[in-house]
Design a protein around this nucleic acid. Structure first.
Length: 850
RNA sequence: GCCGGAGUGGCGGAACGGUUUACGCGGCAGUCUCAAACACUGCUGAGGGCAACCUCAUGUGGGUUCGAGUCCCACCUCCGGCACCA
């Protein structure tokens, strides 16, 4: 053992000090314009899009969790020679600015722009390679004027329309689209307030037109859960639309059509009553005089009920008969008509045929109102059994019973025949219904895009002429009070002359849902300053669809669906050729507060990355966020473990600058492990480095950053074993260090750039950024190893490991395995009944019987 | 209730049907130091044994397989989405 006094003096190297490295390189990259994308050249494009942030004022650690790996992907792709475009912008319209304005008596624009200023600084501190030249701020009139322009085109194309109906209404945000109402207790997705119903004239986009097309995901690669959620949200149901007619009565001649939608036309003979939604248009006309008072009271009560009461499934079914009958077109049977609020006006036709034997809700209603329950579908032996609950299960052998001429047919075949029969008589057809609704885009707020129409008492709704765009938001407005659009209080904004007749008219004071802003911003990134058109055809042609989009899954049926719809609308008015906005979408997980709740300023559980950056440096924070776990997983925030990542970077620093250094107290310092030869040591180093390169490359490709970091840690652990030995600083070592720096560069850009520049300087070479260096190639010869360790199992239990030459035959492997001492002991004289050599000789399992 | 996803050491998490527990944190011991911090080295799933070793462990119970964390069936728990959608 080496004596302390004999040890060479420990080399003093400069300490790893991120604070002195990071700002310097950030400034340098900026100066050189290293990340300004040449958009004119789309040949080798890689459009990498990350969801633009809302400028709440502070970038928290959650933003870093989203953006940091995205930046690593950008750098990785750039090292593969791709022309990477990674733009950034701000989702600048929205409620928080308006609230801040009300609370602090400041202008929403000033508040927003000040926040953006701060967030730009924080985003730069990440060392991310955003192309700031392409920045988009959606509250800028240069941006939102195009929202208005799109709206006018859609209006012309019949894709936008105005309609009065009962809508979801949030006391803070105003009206909401259907998907912006969340949970059983129906709260606003953004502010959490309870949502009410109001009858309002509102603007819609006709997105239901695309329902079927939206179910086709062949041109967009979504994570499975998002695809499933969108599919469920669109909710395609196949079935039949069947025409019942009203029966004549003392008060009514009858003969009116009552259409119902059903997914179970096979159960038509089991319909024993019919239910209309309280809002159904024929309720008033069909109600018998003696029932009128009760029915009107019921309808009024239903209207007054909150949505949550109305939709609660555990509530007892209610309803009243309207004193009229309907005639079942298939058998001429008269069945009573009820009005009941378990039938929704907005789905299907707002009316159902009720088949209590085969629908749980109808069953419950029938029991309560003592209505007949008739089984019409049965499995063999079940035909005569009492119906004590709705039979809704399906089995292959079920047949129709009590169904007239269709009795005895298999249920699915019978259903088809019943529809065909009705269709021939003009009383039915197969039909498809969707859950998806049109997109309600009107909002009663100030800080959004004004909807560019004018209400004229003479000409009605008049679109603002395109040459008058943008309809600008006034700088200040009176936000006070609630329930009234702030813009309505601005006389100057409100009063205009009608573009058609010139007479006095009023502007629309609703503004657009901010999800419109985010439905096309990546197109605008490509030509943010263009004045004559929203997008640049050549740029869009060359650069889109976006290659890769990264962001949170919380937008699965909102932003990620709206943007698909919007793209199809753009396509249909001839603006783009593509069907989908992006090729691939990846959802990273969400970082929660230490309390396990979603991180938000209002909860006060946000974590400020600035403190961590000043303590450990941006590289450590970046790497830690990647190392925590799989990127799509997220989880509660904790700093446990950040020291380990920081230590890793220090070790890289030490290996690169001080290969010969020895640690005081390390008895093995200066020696090769276990009598290894110099050649063997160098081969081992090369092998480890190239294996790591192979694995790390795969990890980057699959966005598996946690294991990518782990593998680099393993490699540095290997190198540490050779530090101070005779091979440290040699050719193999040097190559390994070079590979470590290149592999780590996308994740920890500053420290690798620093070490890279010192390497180049040390070798007398001219400086060139590591971030434009080419990604290294794996040397297959280095990866190959001469020997291999093969685990040996007896009856599936590990008993020994044998080391054999790599190219060995199975027979020879088997011979060596059977000769291994521990194997002999474990066999205890028994002869294996079977020898399994698995996976091309990766493992041997000996099967013995007792 | 329906549709997704997940349950692996004290913790975050690894693991083409093939050596479970990589990597990191934490813990223990040691070296260095006047001392501490840093750094470095080693150990660290549970139980048993002086030991070489043995037994048991991937939410629970079955199954398929030479071999199951991984595949199949039934269940439990947690997270996300939907919720009277006919």
């Amino acid at each position: 053992m080496t004596q302390t006094s004999d040890r060479p003096e420990r080399t003093r190297i400069e300490r790893y000090d991120p604070a002195s490295i990071e700002p310097r390189w950030q400034a340098r990259w900026d100066e050189l314009g290293l990340y300004r994308t040449n958009l004119a050249d789309a040949r080798n494009r890689y459009y990498l899009l990350t969801m633009y942030p809302y400028p709440s004022g502070d970038l928290h650690i959650g933003h870093w969790y989203i953006k940091t790996p995205t930046d690593a992907i950008a750098r990785y792709q750039r090292m593969h020679g791709r022309n990477v475009f990674l733009p950034i912008g701000f989702d600048a319209f929205g409620l928080p600015a308006e609230n801040a304005a009300i609370k602090n008596k400041i202008n929403p624009r000033d508040w927003t722009m000040k926040n953006i200023e701060n967030m730009r600084r924080q985003l730069r501190s990440m060392g991310a390679t955003f192309d700031w030249d392409s920045e988009v701020v959606t509250s800028d009139p240069d941006y939102y004027r195009w929202n208005q322009w799109f709206f006018l085109q859609f209006l012309k194309a019949g894709l936008a329309y105005r309609q009065k109906s009962a809508v979801d209404w949030c006391p803070n945000d105003g009206t909401l689209a259907r998907e912006q109402v969340e949970g059983v207790d129906r709260r606003c997705w953004r502010c959490g307030a309870k949502v009410e119903k109001r009858d309002l004239d509102q603007w819609y986009l006709r997105v239901t037109k695309y329902a079927d097309e939206l179910l086709d995901f062949s041109e967009i690669e979504f994570p499975d859960p998002v695809r499933v959620m969108q599919t469920n949200w669109i909710g395609r149901s196949e079935g039949g639309e069947i025409v019942f007619t009203t029966a004549p009565s003392a008060h009514h001649p009858g003969g009116e059509e009552l259409r119902v939608f059903t997914t179970r036309p096979d159960t038509l003979f089991g319909a024993t009553f019919m239910v209309l939604a309280p809002e159904h248009p024929l309720v008033g006309a069909l109600t018998a005089p003696e029932r009128r008072e009760e029915v009107e009271a019921y309808v009024a009560a239903a209207a007054a009920k909150t949505e949550i009461d109305r939709l609660s499934t555990d509530r007892d079914k209610t309803g009243v008969p309207i004193g009229a009958d309907a005639i079942n077109p298939v058998n001429g049977e008269r069945i009573p008509i009820f009005v009941a609020d378990y039938v929704l006006a907005g789905y299907g036709t707002g009316a159902i045929m009720a088949v209590p034997a085969h629908d749980e809700r109808d069953f419950e209603f029938a029991v309560r109102f003592e209505l007949p329950i008739r089984r019409v579908v049965a499995t063999p032996g079940q035909e005569g059994a009492a119906v004590d609950g709705a039979y809704v299960a399906h089995s292959a052998d079920e047949i129709l019973v009590n169904s007239g001429p269709f009795s005895g047919l298999a249920a699915d075949e019978g259903g088809r025949r019943i529809v065909a029969d009705l269709e021939a008589r003009g009383l039915g057809r197969s039909a498809v219904t969707y859950r998806l609704r049109d997109w309600l885009i009107s909002r009663q707020r100030y800080w959004g895009t004004p909807i560019p129409v004018i209400h004229c008492p003479v000409d009605g709704i008049v679109p603002v002429p395109e040459e008058d765009l943008p309809v600008r938001l006034p700088d200040t407005v009176d936000y006070g009070g609630s329930g009234v659009n702030p813009l309505t209080r601005d006389e100057q904004f409100l009063n205009v002359s009608c573009p058609v007749c010139g007479g006095p008219a009023k502007r629309e004071t609703d503004t657009m849902d901010t999800f419109i802003d985010s439905s096309w911003y990546w197109y605008r990134y490509l030509s943010p300053h263009r004045q004559d058109a929203p997008i640049d055809d050549d740029m869009v042609e060359g650069w889109t669809p976006v290659e890769q989009y990264t962001g949170g899954a919380e937008h699965a049926v909102m932003h990620l669906l709206y943007a698909r719809e919007w793209t199809k609308m753009m396509r249909d008015i001839g603006l783009v050729q593509q069907n989908e906005p992006w090729r691939r979408v990846f959802n990273q997980g969400q970082i929660l507060g230490t309390d396990g709740e979603r991180m938000s300023k209002s909860r006060g559980n946000t974590v400020d990355p600035d403190d961590l950056v000043s303590k450990y440096g941006a590289d450590t924070v970046r790497l830690f966020l990647m190392f925590m776990g799989p990127w799509d997983q997220g989880g509660p925030w904790t700093t446990t473990g950040i020291e380990g990542v920081h230590r890793f970077l220090r070790r890289v620093w030490t290996l690169a600058l001080d290969p010969a250094g020895m640690e005081p107290g390390d008895p093995d310092a200066g020696r090769l492990p276990a009598g290894q030869s110099r050649d063997a040591a160098e081969a081992a180093i090369r092998s480890a480095a190239h294996r790591t390169l192979r694995d790390v490359t795969e990890d980057y490709e699959g966005f598996r950053f946690n294991t990518m970091v782990a593998k680099l840690m393993e490699l540095t652990n290997v190198l540490y074993r050779y530090r101070g030995s005779e091979v440290a600083g040699g050719a193999a070592w040097d190559e390994a260090i070079r590979l470590v720096l290149l592999m780590l560069a996308p994740a920890a850009p500053h420290v690798t750039e620093e070490l890279w520049s010192r390497r180049l300087a040390g070798a007398g070479e001219a400086w060139s950024s590591i971030h434009v260096a080419r990604w290294p190639e794996v040397d297959p010869a280095a990866v190959a190893e001469a020997t291999r360790e093969v685990p040996v199992q007896v009856n599936g239990k590990l008993r020994d490991r044998v080391v054999v030459p790599t190219g060995i035959s199975d027979a020879e492997l088997e011979r060596q395995v059977l000769a291994a001492p521990k194997v002999v002991a474990a066999l205890a004289g028994r002869t294996p009944a079977r020898v399994v050599v698995a996976g091309g000789g990766r493992l041997v399992n000996l099967v013995v019987r007792d």
